[in-house]
Design a protein around this nucleic acid. Sequence first.
DNA 1: GTTGTGACTACCA
DNA 2: ATGGTAGCCACAA
Length: 104
Amino acid sequence: MKSSDELRHAIWQALAAVPAGKVVTYGQLAELAGLRGYARYVGSSLKQLPKDTTLPWFRVINAKGQISLPLGSDSYERQRQHLLNEGITVKHNRINLKAYRWQP
DNA sequence: GTTGTGACTACCA
DNA sequence: ATGGTAGCCACAA
């Protein structure tokens, strides 16, 4: 069995490999980390990241192609800005997964 | 041991 | 397209 530390580490490591200008879904990131079915755990792990982290947490969106944060919240706006800065179009809380999804 | 919760998903009406 | 639902898994009460 793996400790929760190992699980988070695996997730963060997979996250570090996501290139700028691309996005991945929670479920996808879980799989990249070798943890099929851990989509929800990915979310709770991202929440624990220090606010000054250099990891691209903002490149993670849900399977519907939307930002999974309360609309209008500070974190929501920060994520949206980061994505726009990387040339990712975000319209009405929608992102074109077909166009921006990262496929290793 | 049980119950409820969440930055999730896939399926189905 | 849209809303409900049932799985999902670790974690905190």
